[in-house]
Design a protein around this nucleic acid. Structure first.
Length: 426
DNA sequence: TCTGGGGTCCTAGGACCC
DNA sequence: TCTGGGGTCCTAGGACCC
């Protein structure tokens, strides 16, 4: 049997941990640049604050009900996430915990007898909450997709299930599926949900679970659809256990704090994002063959589409590299090609792809002897920046003023990762 | 008028996830 | 006035090869 455990309203719970006064009060956390709402406490949900809705639209509601607002504090969330995952690893053994996202992990519970799973799950929940202060919910079922169904319902009907639901027989599974709309199934997004209901009159998960695998193949994205149907029927799909430690694509993209119309600022931003992406690349000991850059214009015509046009281009490098300076040059050159005078831009991004392990970089006749020095320089920069953060060392191309940087007007202290921001007990 | 059969690699784009 | 930032997987189709 498998389980999915997830932290309730994770970012909000992290903020509340250090502000007990906010318990039972509505809380929201904003995305980067304080753009939209990405986490809401139950109280905020009840008020009708929408998920992923723009902050400015929810502002009247937020002010009226005195909702506590926080900018995202990823230092804090990252550390608390690690504590939750570490607790699970201690309880279940490293190999039975698969971290799925910052606030979720799949657990392999096949080591326990089936008739004890309810108790075991309750015990896990209790321990995580006691050790970390973060509330969690657990769904247990024969497959991951069904575990997700159980997890959702355990939260939806919390007064009955108290955050733990075990689906260990057909009757329970069917009952749960019946009470799950298709759009609430893991792997069915808006497009598929619309298609299923309008074309095939399929509205709940039970109906979908009774369709054939061929139906999944034809209408729900090929093999992905086949897997989904299988899992709904209770047949676990074998996973290709090729530890996905190394990413196949690395991206760093950001909105600007305010629209930018000069090419110099955009080049600085792109150089900065390239540095960050290159760091991520070196952390996984990779080297990239392709770098892409895109910019997004500020849309003048609001009634059409607020997103604005995305203009991008990419360059394939003569040899895969992880050196910041070798990546910045082509990235900035792309900006030269994309930039149009008199246009306002609100976002830019850098993507690295064609990633290979850096010990297998294909030999290139023209590689110079100075490579070793550069590698050492990169390591040194990474070490200093990692221990100090905030980019103590950076390339000149990244600029020093950075007036395009994002806004974070409601940021909380990094309580658990900075000595001078420690929580104080008075 | 008629134009093989099989394969690989790459890219763009669509759909999904948190 | 103001709408995030990362990722994944899959398919189709084009270019190319023998």
């Amino acid at each position: 049997m498998k389980a999915i455990i997830d932290c309730n309203n994770f970012y909000c719970s992290c903020e509340r941990l250090f502000k007990p006064k906010l318990d039972k009060k509505p809380v929201v956390v904003l995305s980067n640049n304080d753009g939209c709402i990405i986490s809401r406490s139950n109280e905020a949900k009840k008020l009708g604050v929408e998920m992923a809705g723009p902050y400015f639209k929810a502002k009247p509601l937020i002010e009226k009900y005195d909702v506590a607002v926080f900018s995202s504090n990823y230092n804090l969330y990252g550390d608390l996430s690690w504590r939750v995952m570490e607790t699970l690893r201690i309880l279940l053994g490293k190999n039975n915990v698969e971290v799925y996202s910052v606030d979720e992990a799949f657990l392999d519970l096949s080591i326990f007898p089936e008739n004890e799973l309810q108790t075991i799950a309750e015990k896990i929940k209790e321990t995580v909450e006691m050790w970390t202060g973060i509330k969690v919910s657990i769904g247990v079922a024969p497959t991951k997709v069904l575990a997700k169904v159980a997890n959702r319902l355990s939260k939806k009907y919390v007064s009955t299930y108290n955050g733990v639901m075990v689906l260990d027989n057909e009757e329970k599974i069917n009952h749960a599926l019946k009470h799950t709309q298709i759009s609430e199934i893991w792997g069915v997004g808006r497009q598929y949900a619309e298609k299923l209901s309008q074309l095939f009159c399929i509205y709940d998960a039970l109906q979908l679970s009774r369709m054939s695998e061929e139906f999944g193949r034809t209408h729900l994205g090929g093999v992905t659809g086949v897997r989904l149907i299988k899992e709904l029927k209770g047949e676990p799909v074998k996973e290709t256990d090729d530890e996905l430690v190394s990413k196949k694509m690395i991206a760093t993209t950001r909105m600007f704090g305010s629209p930018v119309s000069d090419i110099a600022s955009i080049k600085e931003a792109v150089a900065t994002y390239t540095s960050r992406a290159a760091e991520k690349l070196r952390r996984q000991h990779g080297a990239a063959k392709t770098i892409s850059v895109f910019v997004v214009t500020k849309e003048e015509n609001h009634n059409v589409d607020y997103r604005g046009a995305t203009l991008g281009d990419s360059v394939t490098l003569p040899a895969a590299t992880s050196f910041t300076n070798e990546l910045i040059k082509p990235a900035v050159a792309i900006v030269d090609r994309l930039f149009k005078n008199g246009t306002q831009y609100k976002k830019a991004g850098v993507m690295l792809s064609g990633i290979v392990p850096d010990n297998s970089i294909q030999a290139n006749l023209f590689l110079s002897e100075t490579k070793n020095c550069e590698r050492k320089l990169m390591d040194m920069i990474d070490n200093v920046n990692f221990s100090q953060r905030n980019d103590v060392l950076k390339f000149a191309a990244s600029g020093t003023v950075r007036n395009w940087k994002m806004q974070q007007n409601h940021i909380s202290p990094r309580y658990t990762t900075r000595w001078n921001e420690l929580y104080e007990v008075s």
